[in-house]
Design a protein around this nucleic acid. Sequence first.
DNA 1: TTGCTCCTCACGTCACGTGAGGTGGC
DNA 2: TTGCTCCTCACGTCACGTGAGGTGGC
Lengths: 272, 272
Amino acid sequence: MLTIGDFARLGRVSPRMLRHYDDLGLLRPDQVDPVSGYRFYAVAQLTRLHRLVALRDLGFGLDEIGELLDDDLPLEQLRGMLRMRRSQIQQTVAEEQARLRRVEARLRAIEGSNAMQTQDVVLKQTQPLRIAEASGTAPGFGSENLAPVFGRLFPKVFAQLDKAGIAPGVMVAYYEQPDDEGTVVVHAGFEVGNKKVPRTGDVSVVELPVIEVASVVHRGSMDDVEPVYESLVRWIEDSGLRLAGRSRELYLQCHEEDPSANVTELQMPIAR
Amino acid sequence: MLTIGDFARLGRVSPRMLRHYDDLGLLRPDQVDPVSGYRFYAVAQLTRLHRLVALRDLGFGLDEIGELLDDDLPLEQLRGMLRMRRSQIQQTVAEEQARLRRVEARLRAIEGSNAMQTQDVVLKQTQPLRIAEASGTAPGFGSENLAPVFGRLFPKVFAQLDKAGIAPGVMVAYYEQPDDEGTVVVHAGFEVGNKKVPRTGDVSVVELPVIEVASVVHRGSMDDVEPVYESLVRWIEDSGLRLAGRSRELYLQCHEEDPSANVTELQMPIAR
DNA sequence: TTGCTCCTCACGTCACGTGAGGTGGC
DNA sequence: TTGCTCCTCACGTCACGTGAGGTGGC
């Protein structure tokens, strides 16, 4: 018969763990002194402790170990739990490897001294977004191409909403894949939440799908957005991800008079 | 100015998180209503939230993020923290992959239906072990070869300890690498803790090094140990580890009259 | 009035580590 | 008497999730 300290040394665990396993009913001492409460363990119990530790080292929680220690656990259930554990670990490994790629991308970015730009890139699901929008075409990207199109589209949508008495939400633009000559279809409009919007010829209501994006917040004029997009694309490639479509832009704060105070979120759809 | 709910939706976090970051001083609201305690955020604060989330996604703790969000953090320190993070993640990945191999080994063991034997294998550091021992040679492994040697060695060491008035601890044996003809040097003795043992010609005191072992508890007669050793070796190979020396045996419970109640721990040194 | 959002506690999570405060045998 | 071991609470860990109980504006 062994004291808790001796049994703990034998099993290479702490006495605290043995008390914990006792509390949870996973490994009861062979005997307990009714007066002092001292726990006494039999050497033969080392088998069960060993099994418990082995399962813990496989990453099972103590609640699962409670089931697994059951002597007449059906083999099929053991197999099932091991398979589940396997796929959980596989997922953990994949996640940590992706995280590792992102850390390494950041380290490379520091060397390349574009540290500022990649500080703030975040992977996330987009918020659900229901917008009233109009579309048009621009001969390419860049403020010089897009500004005139936005100049037509936004007021048009705004006027429609105003006429219907709907307060517009955040200003949004998104793009379709440009054709071979670089011509790009531009969608521009405002978030409308769940409000009913009368349909007219030019303005339609679209629910943008919830997708996974790499997102970065740009502060200042959209004239200066080009390098931010560049580093966003580089970040995505550096992180071992793939671009999966054209970007969305959310003009979160937009003052004509002071573009330096503008805040724009750039979202690029990604795939793994 | 945004309420906490709006800002949370924008940043794809929960209001609870924003309150938590406020409590920790990581992201203070732009304004707080002194009467109601309502928090109000500026759109421009999305930059900082984004940076915070990005760092969190790299696996930094919130205490570290507190340092990293400091605007005039020296570049060298940022680099240092990223490198540390990288090596931590690399270690996590390595550990999880090792764990994955062990789970897969268990699954294979189930199919091979030697499930019982591999249930209890555990990786651990050996306990510090100081023993009084004598050595001899046996023509090979197996009870028929070892029993006569043990029959000479154990009584000899026991007698020495008895003469010196020292209570012997657990009975231990370990082996050296067998030579080409299979002849093996056998060491056998008893744990003596820190007690002083008089040195004599035949009995010497040895501190066994603390090493990493794969350990399994065998119950019953040592005549039946062979298949246990076999599955232990298979487990080691299956887990992607290497054998690194000969085994130790700890006879934790040893009754001549009822060998079926015996408890023996088998330890095999391993390397990664 | 009913929802909705906001607020501040405060408990729960997971597997223990770490005292605090006290007891019993050498 | 001094160490050593044992005991039972009970707090702390980490980043929040989840009520509970209450308030304020549409």
